[in-house]
């Protein structure tokens, strides 16, 4: 069964009463919430994801509930709880769906230490994976949203899961999160892209999510191997500039972007070292998406 098999009333009821078991990449996520906008967001962006009601076993237990107290009458808020533990302050109720996406990132990064988890956008072509790492605001998600509308398969716009046992990269396809000017940029670039609700005035500015392509969701169980490691940077008005990067330098950059590097110790270092050894490493400056797409097309054809 997939989410799209449930009519909206059934989806809302199951989410509010027992919780849904969503199959997202390698994880089963149990989500429990009576908030209508969460059900709407799921219906719109997670239609093709396998679902179990209620799940027998879940890797991650999440709930999003309206906050109680007097404030609910004049400034309603939503609280995230990871099976009874709430690490974050409540957010305005209208941000419930993006809050789900942000909290799920936190859950994955704090639960799944069988992976080195790198803060990166990840796409694949013909079994070869490109990892776009770098600090927030460098334009990873924008590039990622563009690439998945030009024949690349979406692994994730947020985290690379590098298996410590096999060295493979596991897909974790989820909606791609776009901020501010990127939203209109991608609407123009890929008119076919399906957007979720737009949330203005979040702590990240205006945020909207683009639905993951059906093919990426259907093939979420097929891992790949890293071939390219890139540090993209958007610079307004700049021409495309590509610089090869030393492996040691790339390793340090990746380590700084690995959420659980401090937990993995030597195993984490080995995993990143293997990635760096197996991949071509570049620093990439861009401003025009079409130019950047040309570069990636050349990569895929084997002539950067």
């Amino acid at each position: 069964m997939i989410i799209a098999d449930l009519d909206p009333a059934r989806l809302r009821r199951a989410l509010a009463e027992t919780g849904l078991g969503l199959r997202i990449g390698p994880f089963i996520v149990r989500l429990h919430s009576p908030i209508p906008s969460v059900a709407e967001g799921l219906g719109r962006l997670y239609g093709r994801y396998p679902v179990e009601i209620p799940p027998v076993f879940a890797d991650i237990h999440m709930s999003l509930f309206p906050a109680g107290g007097l404030r609910r009458f004049y400034r309603p808020q939503v609280i995230f709880s990871n099976d009874g533990y709430s690490p974050f302050k409540p957010l305005p109720l209208v941000q419930a769906f993006p809050f789900f996406e942000w909290s799920l990132n936190w859950c994955v990064a704090t639960h799944a230490h069988e992976y080195a988890i790198i803060h990166a956008a990840v796409v694949e072509r013909a079994g070869r994976v490109a990892i776009l790492a770098g600090a927030p605001g460098a334009g990873k998600s924008t590039l990622c949203a563009a690439l998945i509308h030009r024949g690349w398969r979406l692994f994730s716009d947020e985290m690379a899961l590098v298996s410590l046992s096999s060295g493979e990269i596991m897909p974790l396809p989820r909606p791609v999160s776009l901020k501010n000017a990127s939203i209109d940029l991608i609407r123009r670039f890929a008119p076919a892209a399906v957007f979720g609700p737009v949330s203005a005035d979040t702590h990240k500015g205006t945020v909207a999510h683009v639905r993951a392509p059906d093919d990426s969701v259907a093939r979420a169980g097929e891992p790949g191997r890293a071939a390219w490691l890139l540090l993209p940077r958007y610079e307004a008005g700049a021409g495309l500039e590509v610089q090869p990067l030393g492996r040691a330098r790339m390793l340090m950059e990746l380590a700084a972007q690995t959420f659980n590097y401090h937990i993995l110790g030597e195993a984490g270092f080995q995993a990143l070292a293997q990635l760096v050894d197996a991949s071509a490493c570049y620093r990439l400056h861009y401003s025009r998406l079409e130019e950047a797409m040309g570069f990636f097309e050349n990569l895929a054809q084997g002539s950067p």
Partner: peptide, 16 residues
Amino acid sequence: RRPALHLASARRLAAR
């Protein structure tokens, strides 16, 4: 397999 992954993850964290 699934619970085993969580146990392995917890052992890794504790060892660290």
